[in-house]
């Protein structure tokens, strides 16, 4: 039952992503790839699309995967699933636990969850980089030289931009740069 599976998977993703944005990538990566919904390659494409369209990345990913796996109903259910945990929790806080965030216990628990989430995000980012250059796991290692060069060039651009303009290159600009680098690298 793909609809129920989509709903439950994204409900779980919605429930365990603290810190917004990128923190859902490690969980979504694992759930979606292990379910066989996306290949690593598709996952990278979907993240790129979700990052460069408006709205929270979690919603974008849910709608996207829901749609390709289960059509319009699938996308509605996946999106509903990812939103529902925070909707319920915030409603409870707004109505009952108005001082929720001020409880000492909540802050102590978050203080240990946050480094875990950061570790997960960096691991996911590193893994996505390695996947892009051709290493998926210990059984399939095949360096794609062109991807290695593109990644190195892009990393250099990211760092140089930061050094020259004293701020980070916007995500959309960076994706456009990457698209141009890709075009150049594969046309030559």
């Amino acid at each position: 039952m793909i609809y129920l599976e989509l709903f439950l998977t994204f409900f779980q993703i919605g429930l365990f992503t603290f810190g917004g944005g990128a923190s859902m990538i490690p969980i979504i990566q694992q759930e979606v790839v292990s379910n066989g919904w996306l290949t690593e390659e598709q996952l990278l494409q979907y993240i790129a699309i979700s990052e460069s369209t408006p709205g929270p990345i979690a919603i974008n990913m849910a709608t996207f995967i829901g749609s390709t796996q289960g059509g319009i109903l699938g996308s509605v259910l996946a999106t509903l699933g990812v939103v529902l945990p925070s909707f319920i929790i915030i409603l409870l806080i707004a109505a009952i636990f108005t001082r929720f965030a001020q409880y000492a216990g909540v802050q102590t628990v978050l203080k240990t969850i946050r480094p875990v989430v950061v570790g997960m995000i960096i691991a996911a980012g590193a893994y996505l980089v390695v996947t892009a250059i051709g290493i998926q796991n210990y059984t399939s290692i095949s360096f794609d030289l062109r991807s290695v060069i593109i990644t190195a060039v892009l990393a250099l651009i990211m760092i140089l931009y930061k050094l020259i303009f004293k701020k980070q290159i916007p995500v959309i600009a960076f994706i456009l740069v990457a698209a141009s680098v890709g075009l150049v690298a594969y046309i030559i």
Binding site: E41, Q45, L154, G182
Partner: peptide, 8 residues
Amino acid sequence: NGIKCAVG
């Protein structure tokens, strides 16, 4: 092919 290297 370029964009996938940027995502990570």
